[in-house]
C-alpha cells in the first residue's frame, strides 16, 4: 500500500522531526500539556475525593461525575471553548495556540477518573481494617494517612493512569479545533490529503500513548503495598465495570 510508503518517507525524513512545528517540538508540547493538565487535576481532584472518601460522603456525586464526563464529547467541549470569546484561540506561552482552552478541557476531562477512583479507593478499604484502626485509638488523620491511603493507593494510581490516557487522547483531539500538539500532524495530513503524513502522526501518537500507559502500569505496580503486582482475576481496576462501582452508594460510616 502506497500510504505506508508515504508514511515511512515522512517519518524517516529528519527535517520533519526538527524545527518549530516538527514532530519533536510538537511531541514536547503535547507532553507538557498532558503533564500540566494531569497535575492541575490532581491538585484539585485528589484532596476533595480522598477527603470525601475518608468521610464516606458525597458518594453519589463522586461516582456519577464519571458517568457525566463520559457523556460529554471531548471534541465538543474543546470546540465550545475555542469558539467562545474566552479562552478562545490565544497563544499561551509554550502551550501553543488555543493553549488555555486546551488546558482547561484537558483538566476537566482528567478530573472524573481521578475523583471516582480515589473515592472508591477510600471506600473499598475493608471495614474490619478500618474498625481495627479505630479500636487501636487512631485518630481520623492517622487512619487516613497510615491505613486508608496506603491500602487505597493502587486504585488511586489506577485512576491517575486512566486520567493520563484520557488527557493524552484529548490533547490529540485538540488539533481538530486548531489547538496545539501532535494532533496537528494528523489533522494537517488529512486536511491536505497527505495521508502518509496523517498516518505517520497517528503512529507517533499511538506509540507514545502505549509508552505512557506502560510507565503508569509500572508506577501502579510499585505502589501496591501487597507487592503481588496486578492480579488478573477478580480484581477491580480502573477500566472494569462492576455493579459496586456503578450504582451502589457507599455504606455510611458509623
Amino acid at each position: 500500500m502506497r500510504v505506508f510508503g508515504d508514511m515511512w518517507r515522512y517519518l524517516s525524513d529528519g527535517a520533519n522531526w526538527t524545527g518549530g512545528d516538527g514532530i519533536a517540538a510538537l511531541l514536547g508540547q503535547q507532553l507538557l500539556l498532558t503533564l500540566t493538565a494531569l497535575l492541575m487535576a490532581m491538585v484539585v481532584g485528589l484532596p476533595i475525593a480522598l477527603w470525601l472518601g475518608h468521610l464516606g460522603r458525597g458518594g453519589f456525586l463522586a461516582i456519577n461525575i464519571s458517568n457525566v464526563g463520559r457523556a460529554i464529547p471531548t471534541f465538543a467541549l474543546l470546540a465550545l471553548l475555542v469558539v467562545a470569546p474566552w479562552p478562545g484561540t490565544d497563544q499561551l506561552g509554550p502551550y501553543g495556540r488555543a493553549g488555555l482552552a486546551t488546558l482547561i478541557a484537558l483538566t476537566l476531562f482528567a478530573l472524573p477518573p481521578i475523583i471516582t477512583n480515589s473515592y472508591v479507593a477510600m471506600r473499598e478499604v475493608a471495614p474490619e481494617v478500618r474498625e481495627a484502626a479505630r479500636g487501636m485509638g487512631m485518630t481520623g488523620a492517622q487512619r487516613f494517612w497510615q491505613v486508608e491511603l496506603p491500602l487505597g493507593l493502587p486504585l488511586v494510581v489506577s485512576g491517575l493512569r486512566l486520567a493520563l490516557v484520557q488527557v493524552w487522547a484529548t490533547a490529540t483531539i485538540a488539533a481538530l479545533v486548531a489547538g496545539p500538539g501532535l494532533g496537528q500532524i494528523i489533522t494537517d495530513g488529512f486536511f491536505r490529503s497527505n495521508y502518509g503524513k496523517g498516518i505517520a502522526g497517528a503512529l507517533v501518537v499511538a506509540a507514545v500513548a502505549l509508552v505512557l500507559e506502560l510507565l503508569a502500569a509500572l508506577a501502579q505496580r510499585a505502589v501496591d503495598p501487597t507487592r503481588r503486582g496486578t492480579p488478573t482475576g477478580g480484581h477491580t481496576d480502573a477500566l472494569s465495570v462492576t455493579g459496586a462501582t456503578l450504582d451502589e452508594p457507599a455504606e455510611p460510616v458509623g
Binding site: 505506508f4 483531539i173 494528523i186
Partner: peptide, 14 residues
C-alpha cells in the same frame, strides 16, 4: 483503549 481515537482512525484508513 490507550490509543487516542484521533490516532486510531488514521491507522485504520489504509
Amino acid at each position: 483503549y490507550t490509543v487516542p481515537s484521533l490516532a486510531l482512525f488514521p491507522l485504520l484508513v489504509p
